[in-house]
């Protein structure tokens, strides 16, 4: 039976299954073990698997992530939790210089099968230092993969793929989504007995014919809400493409949709300057220029650090009304 489970539970199931499958998979991060995880993603795993597999790390992101990268070179498959992806900047050298370039600089002699996961979102009134969305920054670096699940089904299927991947995968979740529920099949109803979502395949989350909203992470949820309004109130049929991963990128699904609807808006909670949407809109312009009936628009977070004040921060993030208003300017 497909079950309604939360995004958090879906991640936990994925982690648990991979820990069971491969003895080299271990989970490490601040408060992941005895405390059960800052967001309870890893709840119960330490009790089940013990100290060797589920490891509480000191507050030392450069140290433990660098250590995980070193261990991965010798075949361990560490899954490192960042309490907030904002803290990746403390480990930036390790994540960019070591994980991303060792393979290249060794002429292919090394690979780093590490996963660095954690929430990368704003919108929770924790101020600018805890609200970064660095997916564009990491996706800029060849050698890295950036994955952004928007729902429980994908969270489970993608974390399993990320752990099996032999390259570094930076897996960006959202604290706002952890409590989101969704249908996730149980293993006994799946062919092959498990849920795997390949990295690099986008999903058409909603079909439509007049406009394509392309998004990743929580912006997919916002886009789906906007699509409902545009359909119900304005008679505009909206297709929503959920990228699921930014690098590698499923450009066929994007272009196919744009060729069908002739209009596209990229929606993301990233900042606008050199954001993911900047890359995608450039690609659409190059590859589907003649199919476009309107310029590609981008809807992003406000181009400012995250505001603490709750009612104001809300205005910084893309919302359904903003998407509807911008969509009406090109439809």
């Amino acid at each position: 039976m497909p079950r309604e489970i939360t995004y958090r539970e879906a991640l936990r199931e994925g982690l648990d299954e991979e820990i069971a499958r491969d003895e080299n998979v271990c989970l490490m991060g601040e408060e992941v073990a005895q405390y059960n995880g800052a967001y309870k993603v890893t709840e119960g795993l330490w009790k089940k698997w013990g100290d060797k597999r589920i490891i509480d790390a000191p507050i030392s992101e450069a140290g433990f992530i660098g250590m995980g990268i070193g261990a991965s070179m010798l075949g361990i498959r560490p899954v490192m939790e960042l309490m907030f992806y904002s803290f990746a900047y403390v480990a930036f050298d390790q994540m960019m210089n070591n994980a991303a370039t060792c393979r290249y600089m060794s002429g292919g002699l090394i690979n780093c099968p590490i996963v660095v996961r954690g929430p990368a979102n704003g919108g929770t009134n924790v101020g600018a230092t805890h609200s970064h969305t660095p997916e564009n920054i990491f996706a800029n670096m060849p050698g890295l993969k950036v994955v952004t699940p928007s729902n429980p089904y994908d969270a489970k299927g993608l974390i399993k793929s990320a752990i099996r991947d032999n390259d570094p995968v930076y897996f960006m979740e959202s604290t706002v989504l952890y409590g989101m529920t969704g249908l996730v099949p149980s293993n006994d109803e799946l062919e092959g007995g498990e849920l795997i979502v390949p990295i690099g395949k986008a999903k058409v989350a909603r079909e439509g014919s007049d406009l394509t909203l392309i998004a990743h992470g929580r912006a997919v949820v916002t886009s789906l809400a906007a699509a409902e309004i545009l359909g119900a109130q304005h008679g505009i049929s909206v297709e929503v493409v959920d990228l699921r991963s930014i690098r590698p990128l499923d450009e066929e699904t994007i272009m196919e949709s744009v060729r069908k609807t002739h209009r596209a808006i990229y929606v993301e909670e990233n900042k606008p300057f050199c954001g993911v949407g900047a890359q995608i809109s450039s690609m659409i312009m190059e590859q589907a220029f003649d199919d476009l009936d309107a310029p590609v628009l981008r809807i992003t977070s406000a181009d400012a650090p995250a505001f603490y004040s709750p009612p104001i921060e809300k205005l910084q993030l893309p919302n359904a009304d903003e998407i509807v208003a911008r969509a009406l300017t090109i439809c």
Partner: peptide, 8 residues
């Protein structure tokens, strides 16, 4: 940190 990781 990589050296610590190899030892780990």
């Amino acid at each position: 940190p990589l050296g610590a990781g190899l030892a780990f």
